[in-house]
């Protein structure tokens, strides 16, 4: 009986010792990893992914005006990749236009990047006129910007904060009106 009690106490001490060693080593790893593998500031890295700095680009609009993403720094931006033959893009456009009309006075910038290398200027012109689109539509004639943003499906929409950081990426559509408005509200709330 006494022997059993001793063995039980012995096991308890061993378990406690092992637990303390595990916690001590884990704590040591937390400190070590902080100094040897420091966290990077994602907003300093450029990538078409949530949390990263939005890759910069310059494109001409349908009216011949040059637009550069960097010129809109300090304002919330929505970049929407679309094509006139893409049904979800077409369905999404009136919502984007309504949101733009409601929030442009609060500083919202909306850029519709057309995949012109898979589209025609005539079709784009007709579409914009028919739908009454007032935000800038940019022509990605060589596909360089869609490649830069790794667009794999249409529509793809990037929400960019005032600091140029991508806060959300939505692949596919049409995005519900409430979702776009919620994300725009979030972007505007974060504007200093």
């Amino acid at each position: 009986m006494i022997f059993k009690d001793y063995r039980s106490v012995d096991m308890r001490i061993k378990r406690l010792f092992v637990s303390i060693v595990i916690l001590f080593l884990s704590g040591g790893w937390v400190v070590y990893s902080h100094f040897h593998f420091p966290v990077v500031q994602m907003e300093n890295l450029e990538a078409p992914q949530k949390g990263f700095q939005s890759p910069t680009f310059s494109l001409y609009g349908l009216d011949g005006t040059a637009h550069s993403l960097s010129e809109y720094r300090g304002r919330p931006v929505i970049v929407n990749f679309w094509a006139s033959w893409c049904t979800p893009c077409v369905k999404e456009m009136p919502t984007l236009q309504n949101v733009y009309a409601d929030y442009s006075s609060e500083g919202l910038v909306m850029l519709g990047v057309n995949m012109t290398w898979q589209d025609t200027k005539t079709e784009i012109g007709k579409f914009i006129e028919k739908r009454g689109i007032t935000f800038p539509v940019l022509l990605d004639s060589q596909g360089t910007v869609s490649q830069l943003y790794r667009v794999q499906a249409l529509p793809t929409t990037f929400f960019i904060g005032v600091d140029g950081r991508i806060t959300d990426v939505i692949v596919g559509g049409p995005i519900p009106d409430a979702a776009i408005r919620a994300k725009v509200t979030h972007l505007i709330e974060r504007t200093p």
């Binding site: 995005i175 409430a178 919620a182």
Partner: peptide, 23 residues
């Protein structure tokens, strides 16, 4: 989500029931 962004749903209350993971 609705409580965080009530104004986004005010124009169309039915969007509360939209089957999307975005909202």
């Amino acid at each position: 989500y609705i409580l965080q962004y009530p104004s986004a749903f005010s124009s169309n209350l039915l969007s509360i029931f939209l089957p999307t993971p975005i909202l």
